[in-house]
Each structure stands twice: as structure tokens, then as C-alpha cells.
């Protein structure tokens, strides 16, 4: 229950107009801070839904795959340059962002992650790593402004942000691959 309240507080804080305006004014903060935080808020709130509707999750998300698919779809959707732009200019898209990220990405991630096998988790992380590298290269190398509401330099910054994240994930994967935890635990 505590977790649900923390998540809800985070969600409300993020939804406050001054906070969301500030976070959305910088491209990389919009994508790499606000959006993940919304997912995190959903992740915390998810606990409540799990307790409230255990049936539902058990029946519809037995092996975690539908949930993780939904999570992935929502994440990819918000990586499209256009959606970022429209979240700024169109109320309805903005609203959809605040609903989809916590409830269609955060909640299913909460329910699915423990259900996935180690291999499944690694596949997911690898997939996101590749995607991040791709998005990073796209944003860094694109000579054109992909988002109308953000400047080219912000776009390049976002690209490097993606690449930084990808590097971190590669390090994590390497750590998982080369260090045998059984040696230590």
C-alpha cells in the first residue's frame, strides 16, 4: 500500500503543470527523465492493482509475455519523434502520455518482470540496448531537425543520452555475462 502511495505522489507531482512544463522544456529530460519517471510511478502503483485484481493478472499475463509486449510497444511508441512533438502541442496526446506510460507500461512491467526467465530478461535488455544504439545514432547523425519543438542541438544531446544509456546497459550485460555470480554467492 505504501508503494502505491509513493507512486501516486510521484505521478501527481509529475502531472503538476509547472513540473511537467519544466521537464518538457528540455528534450532529453522529456524523454529520459519524465517518461521513465512516469513508468516508475506506474511500477509502484502496480503493486496495488496486483493485490486488488490478482485474478486478472494471473489469467491474462500468466507468463509475463503479454505484459512485456505491451510495455515494449508503449516505450517504442514514445520514442517516435512525432509523438514527443504532439505531446507538446496536442492536449489529447499529452493526456495519453500520462495514462499510457504509467498504466500501460509501468503496471505491466511490474507484473511481468518477475515472471520472465533470466533469458527473457536478458533478451529484453539486449533488445532495448540495440534500439537505444539505433535511436542514438539516428538522433546524433540526423542532419535534420526531427522534432519541430526542439532544436537540433537538443536532438544531438538526446542522441548521446541514448548512447550513454546503451553503454550502461552493455556494461550491465557484460557484467552479467562475464562475472559468474555463483562464484560469489
Amino acid at each position: 500500500m505504501n508503494q502505491f502511495i509513493y507512486g501516486l505522489i510521484l505521478f501527481i507531482v509529475l502531472a503538476l503543470p509547472p513540473v511537467s512544463n519544466l521537464l518538457e522544456s528540455i528534450m532529453i529530460v522529456h524523454m529520459h527523465m519524465q517518461m521513465p519517471l512516469l513508468v516508475v510511478a506506474g511500477f509502484f502503483m502496480g503493486h496495488y492493482f496486483q493485490l486488488r485484481f490478482p485474478e486478472f493478472f494471473q489469467r491474462w499475463n500468466e507468463n509475463g509475455i503479454p505484459g512485456i509486449l505491451l510495455f515494449t510497444i508503449i516505450m517504442i511508441y514514445w520514442m517516435i519523434p512525432r509523438t514527443m512533438d504532439e505531446a507538446l502541442t496536442m492536449q489529447s496526446v499529452q493526456l495519453f502520455k500520462f495514462i499510457s506510460l504509467p498504466f500501460f507500461a509501468g503496471v505491466p512491467l511490474r507484473d511481468s518482470w518477475p515472471k520472465l526467465s533470466l533469458r527473457g530478461k536478458n533478451i529484453l535488455i539486449t533488445g532495448f540496448t540495440l534500439m537505444f544504439i539505433g535511436m542514438g545514432l539516428l538522433y546524433v547523425l540526423s542532419p535534420e531537425q526531427l522534432c519541430n519543438n526542439y532544436l537540433l542541438v537538443e536532438q544531438i544531446t538526446l542522441g548521446w543520452g541514448f548512447i550513454t544509456m546503451a553503454i550502461c546497459m552493455v556494461i550491465y550485460l557484460a557484467y552479467k555475462t562475464f562475472i559468474n555470480e555463483a562464484d560469489y554467492e
Binding site: 509486449l69 510497444i73 512525432r82 504532439e86 522534432c147 519541430n148 519543438n149
Partner: peptide, 24 residues
């Protein structure tokens, strides 16, 4: 879920045509 994703992307990108706000 996949169907939902398909519809979402279809609507969101004007039928897989416009991936940036500029093309839209």
C-alpha cells in the same frame, strides 16, 4: 496487445507514413 500496438502505431503515424511531426 499486438493488435492494440498495431492500431496505436497506425493512428499515431497516419498509417505508417509520418514518423515525425514535420511529415505529419
Amino acid at each position: 496487445v499486438i493488435l492494440f500496438g498495431f492500431v496505436l502505431f497506425y493512428v499515431g503515424t497516419d498509417g505508417f507514413r509520418a514518423y515525425t511531426a514535420e511529415t505529419a
